[in-house]
Design a protein around this nucleic acid. Structure first.
Lengths: 205, 205, 205, 205
DNA sequence: GATGAATGAGTATTCATTCAT
DNA sequence: TATGAATGAATACTCATTCAT
């Protein structure tokens, strides 16, 4: 009924987060009970409330932390790169690598937005849109200077994001493909599409 | 109490399906209660069981019906088209149109797979994979005859599907873009990518 | 798992109310759990929610119904009585009889106001004040026409109400005193106080 | 972590009592959590246990201390007064003043008896009855010597106590009435009732 | 003297489901 | 064909209490 010998708040909180990410990614937020979560961590259900004020808040924290990390790392990775094509290649490599290494967090952040309260939803969507905008801006720049085909930057941004992010649904580290190969394949698709180049030229008009 | 005067089984079942699609697409399967559903239809919760043996079965029916319809319509639309490029263009147009017109069903079928029991899950995934395979085969054909750039047909299929299906997350009928414009934009992206053609050639080696 | 044979909604609701009045009067609202209540009625805890949207709402209903009945009966009992002294005697008799016969409801309505939400509290207090005002008005009338000693009608009203209502804390039907004796005793105290009359005269100046 | 610098046991205990009186008077014993209490004091919930063995014991201490003080002060105030009328007047003045100055303690002692364990309840009720008996005895004396109207001393005692104690429900220091005025008004009601004296005489038979 | 971490038993409430009518 | 009444198992969350530090 009291403090477990050797217990440590920081470690417990981290264990809760890790277990939550695993369980929610596997079963979905609504299907994970605090009982399940607590059992996985090895504590009592009520003890979760020392660290998170509610189940919903726990989800929010997971999402916000992930999205802020994503934004920060992208900022760092893209800093100083001005050329739109270079920026796009960097984006593809960054996005694929980050998403391959954090599949569960990414999956949760994409799937569980509906599980948030309206207010929390706004917070998360704002973060997501800031990331999207970064890609859209880059595409606009590239179109303006004639490096990219003229198109709809908004649609292209959505399309590229959906395509790349889709890897979380099937990619498994240590499987048939390495991350580097994945990056190369996606880069080809994003930049040149599926057509053979000669064909591409013929298509062009 | 007995039969409500003027009630009609077929109409009631259709009303349940329609209400279920609306509610699940909006709130997610787990968040929709049979009470919500019954209220929307104007019946008592228990009455749903005349038409569906359980809440889970209702979800399964929604998904299976949608996927079977998708497969049947794609079969019909692609029949007799042998050329891979033509087939791909047809696929893009078909997929975009179908998904734009049935956004809710599509959304549910993609998001709620985890809500199914293991057995039901297998059924739905098999249907989905049969559709995916159709695209993968087409891409393989195109690569074999040199019409498409050599790549990984599996990854390309996943990528194209994710890209196109992503429209359900943002596209709204009657908005800035028509379906026809959407098809044109996606076709450009899938076939040629984002690069300007001259650039594309230079990139080629 | 289904409807109990021979069950009837109206009877069940009445049983819940009766059990709630008994239990809350005995242990206090906060100390009565829905488990206790349900067990007393012979149903499952969740079944209470068919009849009352929440534990708090149940309390509100009990209080409001009692207070509305109190007001209605007092209206009926006092109708057509104009003379303040007659009205006061009628009030004493009515209040004592009503409170002796409905001790538990009265006790709850007086003790559990703090258990209500702010909004519910307002509703109940408004009803209570309407009853109080009825007594205050009568006292004012009596003072104006010189039938009652000049005093503070508000304080007198509070004092008389507290005095009479206090009976719920100790009076037991069938005990040493009958209701009629109780009325007579309280009437004496309210009208003449404790002093002997001769003494009363001497006190008067 | 060890002792907070500058902490002082006696001061902390006093702070806990004061906070408990405020919170319990406002929200009721059951509705006040040790967390609320600790927060109000500025300590951790567990720290309360240095001073009180349990939440229930804290309530008991509050009540017993208040009742013992009440008894002691009444003993002191009434000492040497033999005449029943004088004693009664003294009682009214004492009771009103004490209750006006300690409204919260009084309110708690009256309202929270049900929150005590059976054993604790007995302790508190014994103290209360000793106070009540003091009033009953005085009334009996007055009746015996013909100073007070013949009546039921027990009922009169309950009635007077309920009437006077009722002030805690509405009286606010600094409001329309001073304590002295309150005493005067209550004295009038207790001694002479509401009737005008002439009227009183006529009523007498 | 006080904290921070945890417990375990409990609470109101929800909900898919069942079945007598 | 549909309702109205009820179940039973689960759920998020709370709270008095304990005790290693």
């Amino acid at each position: 009924m009291a403090r477990t010998s050797g217990s440590d708040g920081r470690r417990t909180e981290e264990a809760i987060r890790a277990a939550a990410i695993d369980l929610i990614a596997e079963h979905g937020f609504a299907a994970v009970t605090l009982r399940d979560l607590a059992k996985e961590v090895g504590i009592q259900p009520g003890s979760v409330y020392r660290y998170f004020p509610s189940k919903n808040d726990l989800l929010l924290r997971l999402m916000v932390d992930h999205l802020q990390e994503l934004l920060a790392q992208w900022q760092a990775a893209s800093e100083g790169i001005a050329d739109p094509l270079e920026r796009l290649k960097t984006f593809i490599a960054f996005h694929v690598n980050y998403h391959a290494s954090r599949q569960k967090e990414v999956f949760i952040s994409n799937m569980e937005i509906r599980s948030l309260t309206k207010e929390h939803r706004r917070t998360v969507i704002a973060l997501r849109e800031s990331y999207e905008k970064s890609l859209r801006d880059l595409l606009e720049d590239g179109m303006r200077i004639g490096r990219f085909r003229t198109g709809d930057p908004q649609v292209s941004a959505y399309a590229i994001l959906a395509m790349l992010t889709g890897l979380t649904a099937w990619f498994r580290e240590g499987g048939r493909l390495s991350r580097a190969e994945l990056v190369r394949l996606y880069e080809g698709l994003v930049l040149e599409g599926v057509l053979d180049n000669a064909e591409g030229l013929r298509q062009a008009h």
